[in-house]
């Protein structure tokens, strides 16, 4: 939970109005992100730890309860996909 996620070089995360969603862009490719994936990656700034991201999201979505497991799990998947590096 102390690890800090950061987008890997060549990956760009941004909001796309035409698609009404966040996307992750990389060399000649694009992943469309669903609402929760977009909300988590929007907190990744290369500075915040996983714990801080969880805390911020729990404050933003108090009705969702504990998010630690979901957020950490998603970021591990994102690491396995090489979207982010956790340091």
């Amino acid at each position: 939970m102390d690890r800090v996620p950061k987008f890997r070089p060549g990956f760009r995360f941004q909001w796309e109005p035409a698609q009404d969603c966040y996307v992750l862009l990389y060399p000649e490719g694009m992943v469309r992100l669903n609402g929760s994936a977009g909300a988590i990656l929007a907190e990744v700034d290369g500075d915040r730890s996983v714990a801080e991201i969880v805390h911020r999201l729990e404050q933003r979505f108090p009705e969702a309860g504990s998010l630690a497991e979901d957020v950490a799990g998603f970021l591990r998947d994102a690491e396995a996909q090489h979207w982010v590096a956790l340091s």
């Binding site: 796309e16 035409a18 698609q19 996307v23 862009l25 000649e28 694009m30």
Partner: peptide, 8 residues
């Protein structure tokens, strides 16, 4: 403007 995101 139309929504293109990838440009080659």
């Amino acid at each position: 403007e139309m929504g293109a995101a990838q440009l080659g």
